[in-house]
Nucleic acid binder design. Structure first.
Lengths: 137, 137
DNA sequence: TCTCAATTGATACTTTGTGTCAAGACGGTC
DNA sequence: GACCGTCTTGACACAAAGTATCAATTGAGA
């Protein structure tokens, strides 16, 4: 996985510096999601500003995606390929991807009467995963 | 409108103090959306903490709703009744409500195979309103 | 190896929001 | 109208999260 990220990075970004390697390696080690601040705190040898800059680059490169948690805080996680959304478990905090949504189509229908052209959307779904009491209903 | 807000507030909250009246009046004067910080800056006679507290109360009372802008910043706006979402124009920043979504239903279908119980969702739609080139497609 | 532009790290700063606490205001009761 | 207990306020400090700046350093191509 790290090498895949590095390849994607190298294809999109400029220099693959030591600091960026450190950040990329740390990102690749993450299981689930993390905040920029937590990642920066775990990498004292890399400047905080550099961690933020690199996360931004990784997000723009499609390596990471941002997740809006229910409390309003912003997390990062390794991005699955293509357009997708997140199922956020409010009990344990785990996040699953899901794709195949037709929100744009649905919204475009609803927006027709409002003279509004849909260009994109942000959808996060909150609930409970199987291990936390979900999936039994 | 302000009297309606006051009525909703009085029904839900405790004291309707002078400070709260000022904040409620300022909120009622807003056209479109605003940030907590901007509102606080426009009300120097009311303490910043009080503005934040009152906005929180208004949100909990259903008078205001939060809107996630495309740049990640959080805005407030007067809330329409019931469950609804926002069409955010990325050109001029105007926000329209829309309701009648069946996101929960759609997501519940998709989530079935993942043993995930949907409890809620956050959906914001970005695009262009009629005045900014939208609605012509 | 050299050179130059890209990148870094340190730091200060901004923005946005919360916690604390003494002082004051509110509203019910008498 | 006065009193009293509780709620609310405002000021301030603090915290979290992110950005701006800039001199020094580094990477990568020539």
């Amino acid at each position: 996985m790290p090498s895949l990220i590095a390849a994607r990075l190298a294809a999109r970004l400029g220099r693959l510096t030591a600091s960026r390697r450190v950040v990329v390696a740390a990102v690749a080690r993450q299981r689930g999601h993390f905040t920029a601040e937590a990642l920066a705190a775990g990498l004292p040898i890399v400047g905080r500003a550099t961690v933020y800059r690199t996360l931004k680059l990784l997000t723009e490169a499609g390596v990471l995606c941002r997740v809006l948690m229910e409390d309003g805080s912003l997390h990062y996680r390794l991005s699955g390929p293509g357009h997708h959304h997140h199922l956020v478990c409010v009990a344990c905090g785990t996040i699953q991807d899901f794709s195949g949504c037709d929100v744009n189509g649905m919204v475009a229908q609803l927006a027709k009467g409002k003279a509004f052209t849909v260009e994109g959307h942000w959808l996060e779904v909150y609930g409970r995963c199987g291990g936390c009491g979900g999936g039994a209903s």
